[in-house]
Design a protein around this nucleic acid. Sequence first.
DNA 1: AATTGAGTTCCAAATAACGGAACTCTGTAT
DNA 2: ATACAGAGTTCCGTTATTTGGAACTCAATT
Lengths: 286, 286
Amino acid sequence: MDRVDELAEQADERAQSPSNAAATAPSRRKPESGTLGKALDVLDVIALSEKPPRFTDLLGQIDQPRGTLHRQISNLVAEGLVAVNPDHSYVPGLRLLKLAARAWSGNTFRLLAEPHIRQLHEATGETVHLGLMSGLEVIYLDKIESKQTVRMHSQVGNASPLYCTGVGKAMLARLPAEECAKRADQFEYFRHTPTTLHTPKLLLAEIEEIRQTGISHDREEHEPGIRCVAAGLSDDKQGIIAGVSVTAPAFRIADDDIENWQVLVLQAARAIERDMEARLGPRSQE
Amino acid sequence: MDRVDELAEQADERAQSPSNAAATAPSRRKPESGTLGKALDVLDVIALSEKPPRFTDLLGQIDQPRGTLHRQISNLVAEGLVAVNPDHSYVPGLRLLKLAARAWSGNTFRLLAEPHIRQLHEATGETVHLGLMSGLEVIYLDKIESKQTVRMHSQVGNASPLYCTGVGKAMLARLPAEECAKRADQFEYFRHTPTTLHTPKLLLAEIEEIRQTGISHDREEHEPGIRCVAAGLSDDKQGIIAGVSVTAPAFRIADDDIENWQVLVLQAARAIERDMEARLGPRSQE
DNA sequence: AATTGAGTTCCAAATAACGGAACTCTGTAT
DNA sequence: ATACAGAGTTCCGTTATTTGGAACTCAATT
């Protein structure tokens, strides 16, 4: 019943049917209530499609009568949330970028954490991420890229499952044990790589370890060849659970590096936590 | 009557009343029609506020009865477009980031242009932008940052006026003369710096020059100390008007650099145009 | 010329949004 | 302690928007 569930479900749908999803998938979409919700349903579908969908494609994926759907799309277009190509296919509109840009650059938590992850990047020379827990996913709020990374242009805003990412596991370890176990049961485990922790048991065992050390490792569990070292952080006052990580290709990493990074990542996480408390002390709103 | 106008107006409102706008400003906001539009009005206000507004702040800026506004906000929160802080202040929600991330990374034009601006960055070593024309503004679709830039963290998604930016002027020069003149009259000129072109006449004269050379200069017209060299590009088939630029602090720039960059920027723009046509040839939709 | 499929428009009926007023908190002054 | 004021929330009859089926247009095919 959670928004996150729904989005995860959509992602699955897409993963299972690489290309011609529109024609075959019999609309597994549960309609939301409220005018706004329905409009966002449509927007979601448009945003999540890899090829810009056309009217009929949408009609297949969204359980609405033609007339209704048409008006809903028209509204989205009128508001600038969706744009139409000359060939009548739909793409997400620029207004989204504008809104999100504001959301992002104004996010106080990100602003507060930024200097610390920047420093972490300078100390390690590798790609650094700042992630935030949102339901069963981690959403990347910021990243600083290592000099030359070919693949992966800006994860910012992207979401990944908690169970197979360094920051994700670090954040889970920050939850009360029961809550953590509850979530472990809710995941739909997918074995991204041979090392992915793909059962609640495996996951919870590792999280117990993370709780001891404060450090979490991603040993090519999400993408082959990619490892990372992460630490969690939280702030009860604001109800924030987040994490920072250093990521690098496995072949480039020496054991010395790992040990180094563990210290640095922990320092960064603690520094951010300290700043959060400090900021909340003097004046509560700003 | 344009969306862009409205947003520009909002920006003005903010610029004029730095801090306690909520209390004093008598809500210059014209309500949009349709449920969606009203919801987005609220979202806009939340996104554009510099401090997270509280319920009463919003009530002051949006001309709606308390009960109504409250429900509208509740809906936004339920949809994840807005989040509530513990102290009941509102911030834009993470769902926006997620939607925009998809919108951005899936944008075919951006993907197509990316290798070229990357190359431009490598050739110049300076910060490079890719901008798209949207109404009276340029929206930055991508940028690659020069090694150490302290200020300005990610312009991506941000909007600036056309008349005072390098890419903006370059794009205007791509319009038919009448259309260009029409827009020149629509701007609300603000003298950001002493060199800002602040009348239609000044602007049109410069644009005529840009039309000859294909190259546009920002001579600290938007921000003091910042100069840039830009070139416009367009594609009639898709109706896209865009531009690329190289930006750097004025003190660091030698005359040789400028001449160099002119050539490189033009090359990049032409290369992107060529790719667009090529992409549109083989198969029209993808 | 006829047929199909895609996209668009229309309007009575159903539904969701509206908005005024009443209510609940929480912190502050008496 | 008690009253007060301000912020935030809920309720419900009224009102306006959304709904969805059907009819219509346009372009490409047969």
